[in-house]
Amino acid sequence: METITTILTNAFHVLVFPGLLFAAVVGLLLAGLDRKLLARMQRRIGPPLLQPFYDFFKLMGKETIIPHEANRKAFLIAPVLGFVSLIVMMLFIPIFGYSPFSTNADLIVILYLLTIPAVALIVGGSASGSPYAGIGISREMVTMMAYELPLVIVLLTVAKKVGGDELVFSMQKIGDWQAMNGLLISHWSLIPAAIAFLLVIPAEVGTQPFDVAEAETEICEGPLVEYSGAPLAMFKLNTAIKMFVMTALFTFLFLGGIDTGIIALNALIFVAICAVVTVLCMTLIHAITARLKIEHLFKFYWTFVSALAAISLILVWLGL
């Protein structure tokens, strides 16, 4: 009886809240918000707010065409892998005090799981056999190498700040620490780390100015060029969920600790803050910049953004 209740509770967590359904709905909403606000900033009307939902369901009904040169199994499995890892990641990020799964090393698990959706995109693009996809995956891999360094430094900084001498990687403990000592962003030594993380988010999600891997004008959507139908819908869904996951990570790590006691209200506040973060770091920068070339992107991340993160790390290490 116990195990059945546990399985059912876990199934609820994985499938509805905060897992599959919640993440998918909020992710697609954020993506819609991003497109609508971008259009308004560019003095257009823009698509309706629920456009990503309409896109998703329409793509589901289309035909899946697999080219001759493609490796069928890898081609079809790639979006599923990305999807699964994103859902698992979502389970580890607490929504302001409600965390179904919490282990001792959540941050490292998240760091690892973050590489899998990008790898899934790369494997899918590679498996399609198209030269456009080949160039796209090369750029995607270099982008990943570029943003991993500042991301690692930021996560290590947070672990050291919260734990002191002991290094805390558990999300629940980070939340508790923030509830006691104030939001992490209010400690001035972590502000460079917060800015660095905000700059890492657009590269992870793949919006301009860091979307050179999917440059529509040059390489026809890059790794996704041969995808159509349900796999393409899944990849688009992955992008949307990734938007939500990254902003949720930022919200929890740097603005966590708020707890009103009612889960629904917590979730609402959480989503609202995520929406604000999305607008700030993705829509705004998308509207006012052009696309960076790959060598400039790499240099940007390994010099400017890493320097910001490293400043925070050194400050935290010195005890400030």
């Binding site: 199934a11 994985v14 599959l20 139908g229 349900a230």
Partner: peptide, 24 residues
């Protein structure tokens, strides 16, 4: 237990991808 539920998600996702749309 996480593994068990994960397997369930994979099953759902694979079904969605493979069974929807026209099958070529």
């Amino acid at each position: 237990i996480l593994w068990l539920v994960l397997f369930a998600i994979v099953l759902i996702a694979v079904c969605i991808v493979v069974l929807t749309g026209e099958n070529t």
